[in-house]
Amino acid sequence: MNESPRKVRVQCEINGKAYTLEAYPMTRLLDALREHAGLTGTKEGCGEGECGACSIEMDGALVNSCLIPLAQVEGAQIRTIEGVANAAQLSFVQQAFLANGGAQCGICTPGMILAAVNLLSRNPEPSESEIREGLAGNLCRCTGYTKIFASVVDACRLARQ
């Protein structure tokens, strides 16, 4: 191939642990997480920023990891689904998804939970329309979203208690 490929080494923190990821600069963060860091909880549903299955938090902001090139991850703090539970203790959002039927096939669930966690960190008591808007970038084909809304509402209740 005509141009010699150059990989980059990127240092970042994922779920509180330091990582050095070595790959091409335009490697999608999604692939770096799944293939280089071995964190397969983050899913690919479209690769074009539409479905949100690859949602993660980067420096506290919800982003689609399929649209982030590795070269932009230098120094970043990342949270994936693997970092949402505290050891064996599920987060309120996870507990609520489990109790309310928020997950069916489960493929949208990691991204959906990250989106919900991120929403609640910005807005601990969202209204129904704020929940709908906060999750609008995470497509779910199984649930019709109804039980997901209920899960988020329930997570707020758990957090209040």
Binding site: M1, E3, P5, P25, M26, T27, R28, A71
Partner: peptide, 13 residues
């Protein structure tokens, strides 16, 4: 992925 990733460069000034 329909692009050949090794071809691309992304540098941070």
């Amino acid at each position: 992925m329909k692009s050949y990733i090794p071809h691309y460069r992304l540098e941070t000034p």
